[in-house]
Design a protein around this nucleic acid. Structure first.
Lengths: 128, 128
DNA sequence: CGGCTCTTTCACATTCTCTTCACGGGTCCG
DNA sequence: CGGACCCGTGAAGAGAATGTGAAAGAGCCG
């Protein structure tokens, strides 16, 4: 009855590889330095790559218990994950937000619209 | 007692796949980014694909309550859905209008703008 | 105890949704 | 022709939902 009797299989999604048992995550070959929560969230999302996972489901799986109204923990960690993922592999959108539903992990080429942003400065004088 | 004891089955219509429980819709394999209302409307239409669904029925199912005289919500959202559907899969007419009756979801090949389609030529042509 | 990292919680900034208006082309009919 | 509906479509405003930087706790370890 070893708790470890269930060798969690390696999870994959595009260039992402996650090894639940080792606490290791690789993005395009690069090792990601993640904290416990970040890793847990990544596992939860990768396990259902391509599917939308609700905030409550994510919270229940990673934090345990039910998401309290007003708790922004999931959002904050999704943000931290996005930063590290896109930092490791630029130009790829890993986590997609489905307003009102949840998040979906699925590597997609980012849209580098103004790749050649001609004007470095002029951060925009935001009228209004 | 299970409120979730009704795993809504996946709905399909042509290249469209809708998963009511997940809030996810795929058109020709492409994930659609829909808002809650848009998704609800798509579910209502897809559930009765091929059939004409009245505005009042759509409103009742998606918004709840009865459609007030003069309310254009359904029309506005049908438009938003059409834009996203045809954006994801061009040259396909997804939602058809039946004046005086309602809308009908049914993927049909659209008339691709012929090379040099300079003059308007009665693009649609379904006078009942 | 002092210094670190990780978590949680805030406060504010942005973006997205939903409704409702408004304008305009179509159709039907007396 | 003029009026009454019906529907397509773009836009404005108020609110809700999410993004984001930073402060405030909490546990860890030398």
């Amino acid at each position: 009855m070893e708790a470890s009797s269930t060798p969690e299989p390696v999870l994959r999604a595009g260039d992402l590889e996650v090894r639940p048992d080792e606490g290791l995550a690789l993005a395009a070959g690069r090792t990601l330095m993640l904290s416990v929560r970040e890793f847990g969230l990544l596992v939860a999302l990768t396990a259902r790559a391509g599917h939308i996972v609700g905030r409550d489901d994510l919270f229940a799986e990673v934090w345990g218990g039910s998401l309290r109204h007003g708790d922004r923990s999931v959002d904050v960690y999704v943000h931290k994950l996005r930063v590290k993922l896109e930092s490791a592999v630029p130009h790829v959108r890993w986590i997609h937000t489905h307003v009102g539903f949840g998040y979906r992990l699925e590597p997609e080429p980012a849209a580098p619209p103004v790749t050649g942003a001609s004007h470095p400065f002029h951060t925009e004088g935001t009228p209004r």
